[in-house]
Structure formats: structure tokens, C-alpha cells
Design a protein around this nucleic acid. Structure first.
Lengths: 344, 344
DNA sequence: CAAATTAACTAAATCGGTTTAGTTTAATAG
DNA sequence: CTATTAAACTAAACCGATTTAGTTAATTTG
């Protein structure tokens, strides 16, 4: 029966119509009925229904110093990983009646800094950020002001901030293990570099060294490519036509994968005949590609969900200790890894 | 030189430290220097720098009745189309110092309604929505309250709301034309159905009929598949093994495309030998797929940008008239359409 | 040199809620 | 039958900004 929503109705208007004070209406809206007669309660309810009144959240926020809004600053919204995480955060926050403001830093620390400032001014209750790593003072400021903060995907050393990210070592190890078990010995890794300290890249390369050693394989320095996207194709071409080219390649993420597949197409290479391939990031087309692609799936939804959960708990004051949560990836074995015939 | 950001600094504190009144600080912050001596101006500036003060946007919003925030409600954040649009909106709004709250209605009108209410209570300055179509009263309420609203992707009949969407007729027509010119006569279209009135689906099917007629081709009713995603594969299999199967198929969007490609893989069909294929939505892997896929690219970024632009103009009171903007798609011709040998 | 004007600044009201400290009326105790 | 207590409600302060209507001091005008 919503009728005539006059342009701007306040609590005072409702109070007047119901012949009670503003305070009583406020009590009603906050469900504190203890000291309220059935009569006034019904009266207020009727007036609210008739007028379609809904309280101004901005005014409320000002008084209670809580906006029920969090800010999410992603490093680069173009990664599928980011959008999946945003979606999971959104879902988790919806449950808690918390709104999400999404900002895209575009891998630019200056943008990140600007967004942190703006969101602080907006009094968000907390932050989830994929840190660029270049705004340590800002992260410290948040801590200092006791504004809950959770990092995703990247660890910032020397800062005690709750962080949830992929278990990169495990991701790389899984891939190397699959390759090793299939008889590969010459394995390469291809990733993107970054402007600042970026955990996934570092850990994936470090993990690569560790895993190669674990499986008793010798690593060649020129089998590590970390180049900007637009240079990857030529680097791969170079590596493949060099001496002792790798028989297996690990793609660091979905964007790198695309470059590698493009390189194959352009130079007429075939997977898995010419080299075996595993990608970190399960892509939508992994199944339909010929051959279907073996991938290491990041638990994006879980990372987002966990991140939101930790942040909401921090906001509610339920946790205080720092913790770094590494979420395990999943191997999705398909057809892009070829069994090599044993050489001995 | 930001130092000691005491936990909560207000304008009064700054005023006190600078030996001026709150009003003067406010004037300073809003850049109204006309009636302010150089001395006080410098003084205020110094205090602000030293304290790292930044004004509380919530308080400001309450007073000026403007939050510099807009709400975006997407029908389904899983579509690549949605995320691309969100990104474009975000970019455009950043320029205008406007924040974006993203909500995912998950194709559920109830969720959409809940979000509209919540965002209204939050006093957002305007809405961009991919309407489910089931909350007409809410859309009307927004109009009634003069809250700027822009629809994206879908037209709601009988509502005078600014809308920007793909020129679906042109998209379909382009595809049919390409097929026709390659000598195809038996053409099919595969789309998803929807819970409510959904413009793209309707227009794509309607456009399909129109275009088939325009190119003098006879349409078969069983060459129109509009089924939920999980039924598409079997429907396609059925159609292909039926009498006079199509030689060309138009996929209605990225998700449908994936189902079709899966069907091919499972039943050993080859593109373009067994049938030619065009997809509406340019997918990341269109180039690397074998054969590369001919697609009709939606101008997602442009749609998002235009939508944001129109909304921001409405917020500024620069436009009042309703307009429906149809953005033209782009054909990206690749290798999934085969030239048929003329039959006469 | 008093009156009028202008420059520079401020007090107080306001936005729309929440909350604390009362107030009024009815019920209970002594 | 008065004193206490409890129930049901309200007035007013407050959150942190903006803005209007003044105020004070300096400057110009006649």
C-alpha cells in the first residue's frame, strides 16, 4: 500500500503524524520496543507504511560513526581473478548488509593512494586492498587509526596486516610435479613483472626454484621469463628457438597464457606435441580449447569470501591478531601435458 | 610532513588550532578565498598540513544532500559484458570524483528491489541499473523522487528512462549478412531465455527474423534455440542431427558460445567444416581458438562510459529528456565462417 | 571627522538521525 | 493516602560539516 512518497520525509514528519516524539520513532526503528505501548508501536508502523518512509542512512552514519560500507581497492580489475574475488566479497557482504565500493587502482600506486584517502574521508568501516606495495605510509595510517584492513593476493613485509592469498608455492609445486612425473626435465616459467614488490610473481619464481630442486631438476636461468605482456611473445619465441628449449611451460596467469597461446598460433607450434603447458588461473575456455588446458585453479571465490569474512570480523572487533591465510589451489588435469618417453 | 594523525580530528579542532572559526575553515576548504586574508589562509593551510586533517564526507553529505556516490546494479556480474561495463563506469566516475557502489542482482528481482531501497536510503546521487524488469514500481518511485536513473542493456517499455544499449538489430543483422554473403541459407540462433522481459534476447530473436527476411532467407522455427544454459548442448545436438541442419550458427552471448564449443568438442564436430559460427560478445580467446572465432563485439566500454556520462549529466541537471542510445557493434571477422560453394 | 561602505571574520541554525537525561503518568508499596 | 517505583514517553544535546545572517574593525566618502 505504498502511497504518495512526498519528496522528502524525515523522522520528525513521521513522529508528528504518529503523535509521538522523534526519539520514540527512532526506538521503534531500532527495534527497542521494551518501553513502548502496543498502541504507539502500531501507530508508528501504520504511519511508516502509509508514507513509505525510510530513514536517511547518511544521518545515521554520522551519529553512529559507522557506514556499513567497505572499500575494495583492486590492483587491476582486468584480471579475471579480481572480478571473481569482487563478486565473492560482494556476496559475503550482502549477507551482512554491508555495501561495497569498488575501486580500480590500475596498478598505479598514486591511484591507490588517492582512493584510500577518499574512502577514509567517506568513513568506510574497513578496507580490502590488493596492495601495490608503494603506499606503506597509508597502510600504516589505517592501522594507526584502527581502521580494519585486509590485504588480498599480496603480502607486504614488515606490516602486521591480515592477508589472504593463494598458496603460490603449492601452485607452482603442483605444476612442476605434474611436469616432472610426466618425464619433463627442461621446464620454463613465464610471468609478468610488476612496478613494485608483488608477492605472486616473487613467490612463483622462488617456488619454481625450490620445486625444481625438490624434483631433482636443473633449472636454466633463461627458462625464466618475466616480461611485460607485450614482450612475452617474442621472448617465448626466442626461448623456444634457443639451445635446449623447454619441453614444458608454466604460464603465470591468464593474461600470460593468452600471449603464449598466441605465440603458438603465430609460430605454428602445437601443444602438447611441441611443448606441454600448464596455466595458473583456470580460464573459461580451458575445456573447449584444443587440446583442453591443464590448469591450476586459484580459489578466487574462497579468497574473496575469506577476505570479507576476516574484515567483517575485524570490524565487529572479533579478531585482533594478524594472520596470513594461504589458500590451496586445485589442479585441473586436462590434456595439455604430454607424457615423455623415459630417456634411460 | 604529515604527522601525528590524532584519532579523530574535526573541523572545530582545526579552527581552534588556527585561531579562526569553523566557518572560516569551511570556506577555506571550499576554496572561497574572496574574503580571507592571506594570513589566515596560510595559517589554516599550515594547520591542515601539520595535522593531516581531512573533512568527514558523511557530515558534508548530510548537509549538502549529495553523496558523490552512485549505485550500479548489474543483472549478473558473471557476464564479461557486465564487468567490462562496470570498469568503464568506474573510470568515468573517477574522473568526476564520484564513487561507485556495485551490486549484483543475480538476475533476481527481489535482490534488485532490496538494493534499490538500500541505495536510496544511502542517498546515492543516481542509479545505473541493468533492469530485471520486475520492479516497475521501484523505477517509478525513483523518477517520482527525481533520483537520476539510467538503464543499461535493457529497455523497459512505457517508462521514460534514459537507456543505453547495444544496437541488437544491427548486431544480428551483421551476423546474418556475413553468413548470407558466404552463401549460407540455413542459419540458426542460440540464446538464453530469461526470467523476465529481457531486451537483448527479444531483440536478437526479432532482429533475426527481420534480417533473415531482408536477405531473402527462409527461417526455420526449430533453428531458434532459447534455452537455459544447461540445456543448450543437448538442444544443439538435437538440432544438428535433425533434418536440414543449419550450416551456420549465431551464438547469442559468451556463455552460450562456450556451450556450443563444448558441444562441438563432445560430438566431434568441427568449425567451420561442419558449421560456421559467429558469436555476439568478443571473447578473450577468440584469437587463439582454432579456428579463430568471428565475433560481433559489443562496445561494452562505450556503453558503460556513455551510461555514466548520461547519469552524471542528469545529476548535474544538464539533461532532462529521455533518450534511448543504441551503440553500434563491431564485426571482428576471423576464421569461423566458411564460404559455401554456390549451389546454382 | 562622522557616516557609509567594505573586508574579514564568526555565531548559530541546519541537515536527519541517535542517545542521554529527564519528565509525566500510572501502579505499587508502606 | 502519601512515597516509591516502574512504564511510557520526550526534550535536547550531539555527530561534523555548510551556510545564513550578523558583527567587528578598517577604509572610504562627503
Amino acid at each position: 500500500m505504498t502511497k504518495k512518497h512526498s519528496s522528502h520525509l524525515t523522522m520528525s514528519d513521521v513522529a508528528k503524524k504518529a503523535n509521538v516524539s522523534k526519539s520514540t520513532v527512532s526506538q521503534y526503528l531500532n527495534g527497542r520496543y521494551e518501553f513502548m505501548s502496543k498502541k504507539t508501536r502500531d501507530m508508528i508502523q501504520r504511519v511508516i507504511e502509509e508514507t513509505g518512509y525510510s530513514p536517511n542512512v547518511v544521518a545515521r552514519s554520522l551519529k553512529v560513526k559507522k557506514t556499513s560500507t567497505i572499500g575494495v581497492i583492486v590492483a587491476n580489475i582486468l584480471h579475471k581473478f579480481s572480478t571473481e574475488i569482487i563478486r565473492a566479497i560482494e556476496d559475503a557482504c550482502m549477507e551482512a548488509d554491508v555495501h561495497v565500493i569498488v575501486c580500480n587502482a590500475d596498478d598505479d600506486p598514486e591511484k591507490e593512494r588517492k582512493y584510500i584517502k577518499a574512502l577514509m574521508a567517506k568513513q568506510v568501516d574497513g578496507f580490502i586492498v590488493f596492495p601495490t606495495g608503494d603506499n606503506i605510509d597509508m597502510y600504516e595510517l589505517l592501522e594507526e587509526r584502527n581502521i580494519p584492513l585486509v590485504f588480498l593476493d599480496r603480502i607486504i613485509p614488515d606490516l602486521a596486516v591480515n592477508t589472504v592469498l593463494l598458496d603460490n608455492f603449492k601452485a607452482v609445486d603442483t605444476a612442476v610435479q605434474v611436469f616432472a612425473q610426466a618425464g619433463h626435465t627442461r621446464i620454463a616459467i613465464v610471468t609478468m613483472p610488476a612496478t613494485a614488490y608483488v608477492t605472486p610473481r616473487l613467490e612463483r619464481i622462488e617456488g619454481f626454484r625450490i620445486s625444481m630442486e625438490r624434483y631433482g631438476l636443473e633449472m636454466q636461468e633463461n627458462h625464466i621469463i618475466d616480461q611485460p605482456l607485450d614482450r612475452i611473445q617474442q621472448e617465448v619465441t626466442g626461448m623456444m628457438s634457443g639451445p635446449a628449449p623447454p619441453t614444458a611451460v608454466l604460464a603465470g596467469n591468464d593474461l600470460v597464457l593468452l600471449e603464449i597461446l598466441n605465440e603458438c598460433k603465430n609460430s605454428g607450434r602445437h601443444i602438447p606435441e611441441d611443448f606441454s603447458l600448464i596455466s595458473i588461473d583456470d580460464v573459461s575456455y580451458a575445456n573447449v580449447y584444443q587440446p583442453s588446458l591443464t590448469t591450476i585453479k586459484q580459489p578466487s571465490a574462497e579468497i574473496g569470501e575469506k577476505g570479507a569474512e576476516v574484515l567483517l570480523q575485524k570490524i565487529r572487533g572479533e579478531i585482533n591478531d594478524q594472520q596470513i591465510v594461504r589458500m590451496a589451489p586445485t589442479l585441473i588435469a586436462r590434456e595439455s601435458v604430454k607424457e615423455l618417453i623415459e630417456e634411460n
